[in-house]
Computed example of a mutant assay.
Amino acid sequence: MYITCLEKRLAVLTAAFLLITITHPVCAQDAKVLTEAEDEMRIDAYEQELEDYLTHYLVDEYDARAAMAWNRDYSSADALVRSVAPNRLRWEKEVIKPPHLQKTGPLLSKPYNLLGTDAEWLELPLGNIAARAVIAYPEGASKANPAPLVIALHGIGSGPETAFEDGKSYHAYAKALLDAGFAVMAPLNMRSIPRRNNIERLARLADVSLPGIELARLQHLLDVVLQDERIDADRVGAWGVSLGGMATLFWMPLEPRIKAGVVSAWFNHRINKMVVPDERYSSFAAGNEEHAFFSGWLTEFSDHDVVSLICPRPIQIQHGKKDNIAYWPQVVEEFERSKVHYERLELSNRIDLVLHEGSHEALVAEGVAFLKKWLDNDE
């Protein structure tokens, strides 16, 4: 537990307040003003009191709180989906908060040379904003031979083209998908920490979230793209790296058209990642990534709980032991809790952990094989 003796911490903080009060009694006849050092001591103590209070709620009370929030029925896959419907609604309305967008024009498409691959640049007007993506089709895709579609989701510092490039994190996994017979659509999402911080602050004021906006953009794109006769609308997958992995995990519960997913370099022991600093991994609690904090997230939605909103659809988790976004034994712990949802339905073959010796990256062969397995048949 993060706090093993909260009562002692509170006693120390109370003593600090009392020390200042006794030293400087406040009365009408003899009012005293605190020194700057004493004022800092008081407000430091108050900050620590609030941090301890919220950390205790988020960390120590999470399991008990989640146990009351979820009422899963494992009697069948359909029963599980129905039983988590209230949680799914809270995930949508209280955490992701997608806005209501409307199409305000036709999909615009133009040829796009994607590193030697013939592709199309798509733009769909949605009022004051637009959904944009690059899409490429495998050789031979047609009405008579429609291809499955994989949504390739990029992370911080990347763009739609990155998944096609042979870089250190992506290894051209989108190109490998094309070669394997998949169509690939890579949306343009917001890149860079400062830009995401800026937009997320404004989104909170509007009671939406940036992931929610980008989900709504993607859903409108899918409405149109899946009408293309070159694509099999019943065989859609998603594969995201880093923050694209976040998008995959966040959006699959709310987009049933995505039938299978791969999450690379994102899945985590979410409570520790967000709240508990530790030298064994990079904690969001110790950084400047405001964009990564969403209201209501840790009320009941640690990663293993979010997976239950995806189950029984297949999902593969990829994590490198040298990736400091997480301490890999904690990833294993969170995965084992996620796997329970599938085991209870006797569908454990639909969830997979690829734990490798690498770092912050996608494993191409394993991800392609997983998506081929689940999007090439009716299991």
Rank of each mutant, 00 (worst) to 15 (best):
I325R: 04
E343A: 14
Q330D: 11
E336P: 06
H319E: 10
V340M: 13
L345G: 09
W328T: 00
F335H: 06
N349F: 12
H341I: 06
S338A: 09
E334G: 03
H341K: 06
K339H: 05
N349W: 12
F335T: 00
K322M: 03
L347Q: 13
S348N: 13
L345R: 15
V331P: 09
F335N: 06
R337F: 08
I325W: 13
K339F: 02
L347P: 14
E333P: 04
H341C: 09
S348E: 15
V340K: 12
D323S: 12
V332N: 03
I325N: 09
R337P: 12
W328K: 00
D323T: 03
Y327H: 03
I325E: 04
R350M: 12
L345I: 11
N349M: 07
Y327D: 06
I325Y: 08
S348G: 09
R350D: 08
K322E: 05
I325P: 02
D323P: 09
R337A: 14
K339L: 03
D323Q: 10
N349A: 14
Y327T: 01
D323C: 08
N324R: 06
R344F: 09
R344M: 11
V331E: 06
A326S: 01
Y342E: 07
V332S: 05
N349Q: 14
R344K: 11
W328H: 03
V340E: 14
A326G: 02
R344V: 12
Q330N: 08
Y342S: 10
P329E: 07
S338Y: 11
L345K: 09
N324K: 08
R350L: 08
L347Y: 15
R337W: 12
E343S: 15
V332K: 02
R350Q: 13
N349P: 07
I325G: 11
V331F: 05
K339I: 04
K321V: 00
N349K: 13
E333Y: 05
V331L: 04
H341Q: 05
N324E: 07
V332C: 01
K322I: 04
Y327N: 09
K321I: 00
K322F: 06
V331A: 10
Q330F: 02
R337E: 15
E333H: 10
S338L: 01
H319P: 00
S348H: 13
K339R: 13
L345F: 11
Q330S: 02
V340A: 13
Q330C: 01
I325D: 09
D323F: 04
N324I: 01
E336R: 00
K339D: 07
E346F: 14
R350T: 14
R350F: 15
D323R: 02
E333G: 12
G320E: 13
A326D: 07
V340F: 09
G320W: 06
E333F: 11
V340P: 01
F335D: 07
E333I: 08
Q330H: 05
K321F: 04
G320T: 00
E336H: 01
H341L: 03
